[in-house]
Simulated assay, not measured.
Amino acid sequence: MTARIAGQLAIVTGASSGIGEAIARRLGSEGTNLVLWARRGERLACLAEEIADQSGVSVDTGVVDVRDREAVQGEAARLMSELGTPDILVNNAGLAAGMAPVHDADVDDWDRMIDTNVKGLLHVTRAFLPAMVERDSGQVVNIGSITGRQVYPGSTVYAASKYAVQAITEGTNLDLLGTGVRVSGVHPGLVETEFSLVRFKGDEDRAGAVYKGIEPLTGADVADVVSYVLNAPPRINVADVVVFAKAQGSVHHILRDEG
């Protein structure tokens, strides 16, 4: 069966690895033409070539740091002048940095998280949403986190940034009521990607311990959920989805196999 979104144009931020890469691969396999943004140009170029070869879709790339508002606006203007208004925007770019308590945290880590997870998402949304509203159609998917609902020790500012994603998603839906544009939030629990390696600044042992004793979600699992959201009939807005691995009940309840 042909996917409903086949032939549409989707932009995915943070597409060079992890959940973003998995979403790009899944959408490409469904016949969606792609625009992939990330900071790592070499990885992005390799991924784009691979998806184009495997799926036969067109894949445009942009080396964009979503924290840079001028870069976002410039690349968005180029994209829309050449390819038109995207049908789909997946705001995936995001990160966690450190797990120190607030009174002992690195303020630079705070800036990275807030500037990427909150302001970056807003920069990208603001760049494309007016054209979607003018056309009266489009879908936006914001990738949040269960940490945007439940805080755990050491996550204060990261959680605050993801609570903000939740609020932005809900508020944008209200702002768009009566238009043909839909906004959805997808909020995963534990997903094994480079996320923890980035958070712990390359400490592989510490990153690996996060997933020890459980079978976590994969990026492909999250991509499955995003595909479901995007392929729902136009009369449906899947406003909010939380997805856990079977072994996770909340940020505080994880059943680990100690054997």
Score class of each variant (00 low, 15 high):
residue 127 A to F: 10
residue 51 I to W: 01
residue 82 E to K: 11
residue 56 G to I: 05
residue 67 R to L: 03
residue 108 D to H: 10
residue 145 S to D: 12
residue 64 V to P: 04
residue 34 L to T: 09
residue 41 G to E: 15
residue 130 P to Y: 06
residue 72 V to F: 10
residue 85 T to G: 06
residue 126 R to C: 03
residue 139 Q to M: 14
residue 114 I to A: 11
residue 28 G to Y: 08
residue 138 G to S: 10
residue 156 T to E: 12
residue 66 V to M: 11
residue 43 R to C: 00
residue 48 A to S: 14
residue 62 G to L: 08
residue 97 A to N: 03
residue 51 I to G: 01
residue 89 L to I: 15
residue 126 R to D: 14
residue 150 Q to P: 00
residue 57 V to H: 05
residue 68 D to W: 08
residue 98 G to D: 02
residue 118 V to G: 10
residue 52 A to D: 02
residue 68 D to Q: 09
residue 71 A to C: 13
residue 67 R to S: 08
residue 109 D to H: 15
residue 31 G to H: 05
residue 146 I to N: 01
residue 112 R to L: 15
residue 57 V to I: 13
residue 151 V to F: 07
residue 39 R to K: 11
residue 125 T to C: 08
residue 136 D to S: 12
residue 37 W to S: 03
residue 152 Y to R: 04
residue 140 V to Q: 05
residue 133 V to H: 11
residue 51 I to P: 00
residue 42 E to V: 10
residue 132 M to E: 04
residue 107 V to T: 11
residue 46 C to P: 00
residue 143 I to P: 09
residue 66 V to A: 11
residue 37 W to G: 05
residue 36 L to A: 05
residue 162 K to M: 02
residue 79 L to I: 15
residue 137 S to W: 03
residue 84 G to R: 11
residue 57 V to S: 07
residue 17 S to H: 06
residue 69 R to P: 02
residue 93 A to K: 10
residue 162 K to E: 02
residue 44 L to H: 01
residue 37 W to I: 04
residue 39 R to P: 06
residue 114 I to Y: 10
residue 94 G to H: 07
residue 145 S to H: 12
residue 111 D to S: 13
residue 57 V to K: 07
residue 45 A to E: 15
residue 87 D to Q: 01
residue 16 S to E: 01
residue 127 A to P: 06
residue 58 S to W: 03
residue 69 R to H: 14
residue 29 S to W: 00
residue 75 E to V: 10
residue 57 V to P: 07
residue 49 E to G: 15
residue 88 I to Y: 05
residue 85 T to F: 09
residue 26 R to C: 09
residue 53 D to L: 14
residue 82 E to Y: 01
residue 108 D to R: 13
residue 156 T to I: 06
residue 23 I to L: 06
residue 38 A to E: 02
residue 47 L to I: 09
residue 102 V to K: 03
residue 101 P to E: 00
residue 126 R to F: 06
residue 145 S to I: 11
residue 27 L to R: 04
residue 133 V to A: 14
residue 64 V to C: 09
residue 122 L to E: 05
residue 146 I to W: 05
residue 90 V to K: 07
residue 111 D to Q: 13
residue 113 M to W: 03
residue 92 N to Y: 12
residue 92 N to P: 10
residue 107 V to D: 07
residue 155 S to V: 01
residue 90 V to R: 04
residue 149 R to C: 03
residue 162 K to A: 03
residue 141 V to A: 11
residue 110 W to A: 09
